[in-house]
Design a protein around this nucleic acid. Structure first.
Lengths: 226, 226
DNA sequence: TTTCGTATGACACTTCCATGACAAAAGGAG
DNA sequence: CTCCTTTTGTCATGGAAGTGTCATACGAAA
């Protein structure tokens, strides 16, 4: 699950955001700007929501100090003020987006998702006729539940995380078995096989887990955005 | 110079934007949504600013129809209305950003700049009428999708990586088959043949994959992304 | 022990693609 | 322009490699 660092001192906003995204992201809330860099290094968030007005160093200062060292982590600035100067400054310092209060949580969600380049990172996701809960390792299809084994969860998570892309058997082995594993390609095939069974997949041209001869497998969700 | 397509019926906004960006971008202004797709195909903008309220088809419709064919061009929606539904819809349809009037021209500028820097590293490429996704091993042309085989992916990747250059059959064989492969030249030809079919290519003077007698093949992209 | 997860091998089946044959096109020489 | 050669376009086909699937063996956990 993706990690989200929220740095915000207004309790109402904190509560709103963290409860709204609770199922989607692992959220760490900080109420001030102290120890900002250390927090990021430890928590390793995929994205940071950063308030402008904070006790301690203010948002722009934090952004500046952070972008010196950790260039790759995207930062969304959040603020009640929306002065042009400040917005420009924020973008100039490397902010990825700039959200003005009050804002819609749903809109914030799509902006975050778009930036993470992941359309779905929920733990519960619909795959064809099946509803998959990766955390609980369960598949529900037509009201009947099936458990997923460890390997099945790993393989499926990898498929979902890279949905649409063709993944080679080597990649699966590296991800789910470890780099030192000396397995045959049959090993991956069999996990795919059982996944297909549990997902009620068909293995034809409309298959959700598609085979690509000589390349690997890919997960093709029917309608990515409905 | 980067090209910017502005589709907007309010003259004041048009004037403001086009004069502000005159030195930075080559701007084409359209006052309505007619001939939208054709305009894009001819003008080949790096980015589109699209108003929601237009004479003719409205902004969301245009966005939807466009994203079916031209994935790679980022679109910023511009509007006076800012209903949550509409914003969500726009993002779901593939909008890259959503700007609410009135807006600061300078802020618009940094948002545009930031997005132009971001779009360079995409795995989805437009080749003629086809949209190619090498990671997904897939070609979309007129809404119908075709899978690419292993050899097709390799050859096409090599063509794209060296687009514009003439590549000999030997080079293809070395890259996609391996140095020790003892194949005939027909082997490469057949892959090129099937690629042309899947890409909807013509094999004439305007062909995208061009033959060079005695030399090899080259990929000629119409200078959309360089 | 029994049970479950997992890895491996066997076998049938499917698909790709290398090959060769021939047609079509391009280029060069006369 | 015409003929001839060389190169390329295109198709059919057989073989071989990749894959689906099942049965089985092993080990860990209950």
């Amino acid at each position: 699950m993706n990690r989200l660092l929220l740095v915000e001192d207004d309790m109402a906003t904190c509560m709103a955001i963290s409860s709204f995204f609770a199922n989607e992201f692992e959220i760490l809330v900080k109420n001030n700007g102290f120890d900002f860099l250390d927090t990021i290094k430890e928590f390793k968030p995929q994205l940071v929501l950063l308030d402008m007005n904070l006790p301690g160093p203010n948002g722009l200062k934090l952004l500046a100090s952070m972008k010196e060292h950790l260039h790759s982590v995207p930062v969304f600035m959040i603020t009640v003020r929306s002065g042009e100067e400040e917005i420009l400054k924020a973008f100039q310092l490397g902010a990825s987006d700039y959200i003005t209060k009050p804002f819609s949580l749903k809109v914030l969600e799509v902006r975050i998702r778009r930036w993470m380049q992941k359309t779905r990172s929920e733990s519960v996701i619909q795959i064809g006729a099946a509803v998959v809960d990766l955390l609980a390792a369960k598949v529900t299809i037509d009201r009947s539940k099936t458990d997923l084994t460890q390997k099945e969860v790993l393989v499926l998570r990898y498929l979902i995380a890279n949905s649409g892309q063709v993944l080679s058997r080597e990649q699966f082995l590296d991800y789910a078995w470890g780099y030192d594993f000396e397995g045959t390609s049959r090993t991956v095939d069999n996990v795919i096989l059982s996944l297909r069974k549990k997902l009620g997949d068909t293995n034809d041209r409309q298959a959700i887990i598609q085979s690509h001869r000589g390349l690997g497998y890919s997960l093709n969700l029917p309608e990515l955005l409905k």
